[in-house]
Design a protein around this nucleic acid. Sequence first.
DNA 1: CGTTGTGAAATGATTCACAGCT
DNA 2: AGCTGTGAATCATTTCACAACG
Lengths: 217, 217
Amino acid sequence: MLERIRIPRPAAKRLILYLREIGLRAQSGVETISSRQLGEALGVTDAQVRKDLTHVGQFGQPGVGYSTVDLHQKLRRAMGTDQAWAAVLVGAGNIGRALGSYGRFAELGFRIVGVFDSSPAMQGKVVAGNTVAPMARLSEVVAAEGARIGIIAVPRESAQAVADALTGAGIQGILNFAPCRVTVPPAVRVTSVDLTVALEQLAFELRMLDGEDEGEA
Amino acid sequence: MLERIRIPRPAAKRLILYLREIGLRAQSGVETISSRQLGEALGVTDAQVRKDLTHVGQFGQPGVGYSTVDLHQKLRRAMGTDQAWAAVLVGAGNIGRALGSYGRFAELGFRIVGVFDSSPAMQGKVVAGNTVAPMARLSEVVAAEGARIGIIAVPRESAQAVADALTGAGIQGILNFAPCRVTVPPAVRVTSVDLTVALEQLAFELRMLDGEDEGEA
DNA sequence: CGTTGTGAAATGATTCACAGCT
DNA sequence: AGCTGTGAATCATTTCACAACG
């Protein structure tokens, strides 16, 4: 009955990029866009773009392309960006504060409804428009605000404990900035942003390049 | 002649994780580790771990496992983490400053040798132990310090211009924190860390979960 | 025994190529 | 003419399963 089809992970990631690009185009008045144009802007083949888009539905006029506003709306719905998400932030250190003052969160429909830190020194300071509270108050705030997303911005050593606290409080999705894996109950989704991995990946690619033409030196 | 084999991208990413995990274990005195143990710690199957490791060489005693210190050293060499990398940081805003004060960079062998920002208001401030300099001085510093990596920590609108400046200055690898694609000459490697994509990915996964058991409500 | 390294099989993703629509 | 949507073919990655080893 319900055509709830599974969207491959790589395709989902690209759909997010398409959504962003189309939003920009729609805003600047472009009416239609072809799979080729969209692909070129993002470094993807036109066939890939079309295949990806069919995962979420089929709109697009042969001979013309896709209506930007239509596609934008449909993609927003499909990707969950059309609804507002309440999130709590744990960790008011460097990364936490940078995230807190990162304006684009709000634009994307994410609202930070609580900031927590275990350090007494941080208590009472204001981050992202929220007074930093102790971890003890986490559950209470999550429940009161209906937060579904938790952001981990603490050092590696405390990341797992924070993840446990978040899931204990009823959080359903975690954005993890700590350079480690956190294990959570299967119903909870985790997405990681790992700076150190990104850096090492880059170093690795440079290393490969070196190796290629230095073969014998 | 040279067995310069290509390592698949996904495998390379996991190798970085193995490297980190093994470093921790080696430091805490563990002598050997099996593919199963390593995989369990990282959420990967044992077969996957073994296959990945063969891409970089073969060490490991049947019946015993891998020597942590040996494997750690070999992996560091293979991944390029055994050498120091000089990097310049462009953008002294929220993200830039957070990155600058992120202690782990140094641990990983990355040294920030210059911080740049086009805003006159930032000139002269100190970030990551470096006095913020104007973009005009980029090439000079890159050359003098032998920097090979550039970090983009500016808003989307200026990201491409910064990328151009970096490649113009001779940078070979870019770590891009701006929420957009930057195009560069083919010889330059780019790795992106996109906060907004990570968040939307999470929102998307939660959305999928909702859909599944809400099918008819 | 337990564990590695690895071909072979299975799965998954991308690209091709073209029929069909506007 | 130009472009979409898609089955079929290719390519890549993961998993299986097992012989060889300590």
